[in-house]
Design a protein around this nucleic acid. Structure first.
Length: 526
RNA sequence: CGGGGCGUGGCUCAGUCUGGUAGAGCGCACGGUUUGGGACCGUGAGGCCGGGGGUUCGAAUCCCUCCGCCCCGACCA
């Protein structure tokens, strides 16, 4: 098993001002003696921060630049395919965890924890499951210097080990339903890795439930998709999603049906933001999860599983950030407001800091904030740094503000001076709280507008090919798995989902020309 | 795993073709002047040139071989 990992070589120390732009195509190609000339032109016309490639130039490099410049992750170059979640990146994950955990618990689930290692034989019990995961499973064969009689695999997902225990725990219909979630790390040895989007080890939550009837399992699967995942991603992450059903070729190995939410990134590609599987009786049969019903008949149970991962951090970055750096929706921002005090000498500092203390006194519990008291950095440097790091609101307090009873307030979703205004200190707390909500809403609206303007209804294959160059294609579909495969080979696009929300009626299949009853979403995906 | 690129102070790179024992900018440390959109001057610290083998009087440089990273593709949360 071999995978390739991730390491950004171009990793300048935090924000810095280099005399030559590293990624300016002009000088790269360029004539050496004119470097400085090109550099000055570039400087004047580019709003981009140092070290961040423009999205329009190289989207994938832009993503890596944001991860590095916003200090979200480090590359674990000594462990293939893995990253370190640095404090800022992990704090975003903690925000995701708390929003999801609350919803998971509100809908009746409880947390538990199952082993990292799974007997290899467990994985073999469900035919599709083995086939689906075999290529990406890491195996533990030795311990204490000796070969194990039965190797373990490091969990790529936990249906099998949890299935084993559920079989042990379930005896009667009175034991049902079982509604358990676990927060865990899993390992999938991938061919190609990208920080947050795809790494060998990642963090996630996986819910595993057992039900007495098929209908109850189906209701659970859909409830998680709508009330937990879509609700969280749209409200907290400010990311609109398509909710839908996966086609057979895209569904989870071992599932009866897989539902998903799909989000659109700024390059028009789709990112699966969450999945919820109705596992039918596949795992229940393989692990003999059985119960005695009211009429004393032994029945096989129905199970579901569902998960979202640290990949959501990648979605967050790619959906909202800009060429100036990270943009985090206020509800998920670890720091919602940063205060930059401005002063020239000790006398001014004393006055300004006194005002800052007074202004922020009532923020506790209302705003997550930080006061940037670093003395050796200029205010301008700090403005840029906090913009790169995506803090939604910045408050500047200087001697003039103290005099006038004002502060400067800047919003990250409108970068640079345009997003800056001077407001009175009086009523500032309420003003900031309101602005945070406004930014949250604005980011969502912007994402909705982007998604809508980049989703095209298409009726011919030629139109489909064109649409997926810039976004999603929405069309009638009556093809099969082979048709999907051919389209994928020809266009690199796949059916992301069959939306739950269907127009009804019939149409002509975009590919086969047959009469179709369902509309689907095609896109290239991450 | 295929095709392409790459690995030199913390970071970005020059030096490799044409072997002679390592440089720049940024960052970092100290001192001073600065501070409302990425400040400046001075002084200084920091590198077994990804690892291992070979050729050679001598290897960052040539040869072999591992390892790792980036881009494109196939596989995937």
């Amino acid at each position: 098993m071999v995978v390739s990992t991730i390491l950004v070589r171009r990793m300048p120390q935090a924000p810095c001002r280099t005399p030559l732009r590293r990624r300016c195509a002009m000088w790269r190609v360029g004539v050496i003696q004119y470097h400085h000339v090109f550099d000055m032109r570039w400087e004047r016309h580019s709003m981009a921060k140092d070290g961040i490639t423009a999205r329009s130039k190289d989207y994938s490099q832009w993503y890596l630049d944001i991860v590095r410049e916003a200090d979200l992750a480090d590359y674990a170059e000594v462990v293939r395919g893995c990253i370190v979640f640095k404090p800022t990146g992990y704090a975003i994950w903690e925000g995701i965890q708390s929003g999801l955990d609350a919803r998971i618990k509100e809908t009746g689930h409880v947390n538990a924890y199952f082993p990292l290692l799974i007997p290899k034989s467990f994985l073999m019990k469900e035919a599709e499951h083995v086939e689906g995961f075999a290529p990406e499973v890491a195996e533990v064969t030795h311990a204490s210097g000796e070969e194990l009689t039965e190797p373990y695999v490091i969990r790529p997902t936990s249906e099998t080990i949890i299935g084993y225990f559920y079989a042990k725990w379930v005896r009667s219909y009175r034991d049902l339903p079982i509604l358990i979630n676990q927060w865990a790390n899993v390992m999938r040895w991938e061919m190609r890795t990208r920080p947050f989007l795809r790494t060998a080890e990642f963090l996630w939550q996986e819910g595993h439930t057992v039900h007495a009837t098929e209908q109850e399992a189906e209701e659970e699967t859909l409830m998680i998709l709508n009330d937990v995942y879509a609700d969280f991603v749209e409200k907290e992450m400010a990311l609109p999603v398509f909710r839908g059903l996966k086609t057979d070729s895209e569904k989870f190995p071992g599932a009866l049906r897989t539902y998903c939410i799909e989000a659109m990134m700024q390059d028009g590609r789709a990112l699966q933001a969450g999945t919820s599987h109705n596992l039918g009786q596949n795992f229940a049969k393989a692990f003999e999860i059985q119960f005695t019903d009211q009429s004393n008949t032994v029945q096989t149970a129905w199970t579901s599983s569902w998960g979202v991962s640290t990949r959501l951090i990648g979605a967050l970055i790619m959906a909202h950030s800009d060429d100036d750096g990270l943009v985090i929706p206020p509800r998920l921002a670890p720091i919602q407001t940063v205060v930059v005090p401005i002063y020239k000498n000790d006398a001014e500092k004393a006055v300004v800091m006194e005002a800052v203390a007074r202004i922020t006194a009532e923020w506790k519990g209302k705003i997550r904030f930080k006061i940037d008291t670093r003395d050796h950095l200029s205010p301008g440097f700090k403005f840029n740094e906090w913009e790169v790091k995506g803090v939604p609101v910045r408050i500047e307090v200087g001697p003039k503000d103290v005099e006038k009873g004002s502060v400067a307030m800047a919003r990250r979703d409108v970068p640079g001076r345009e997003g800056k205004s001077f407001v009175p200190q009086e009523g500032l707390t309420e003003r900031i709280v309101a602005l945070l909500e406004e930014i949250q809403a604005a980011l969502y609206q912007r994402a909705v507008a982007f998604k809508e303007s980049h989703t095209r209804s298409v009726s011919t294959y030629a139109e489909l090919k064109e649409a997926i160059e810039t976004g999603f294609a929405y069309c009638w579909w009556a093809g099969d798995g082979d048709d999907e495969k051919r389209i994928k080979e020809e266009t690199r696009a796949t059916i992301r989902c069959i939306p739950l929300d269907q127009p009804g009626g019939t149409g002509t299949c975009v590919y086969t020309g047959k009469s179709a009853t369902k509309m689907v979403v095609f896109a290239r995906s991450y």
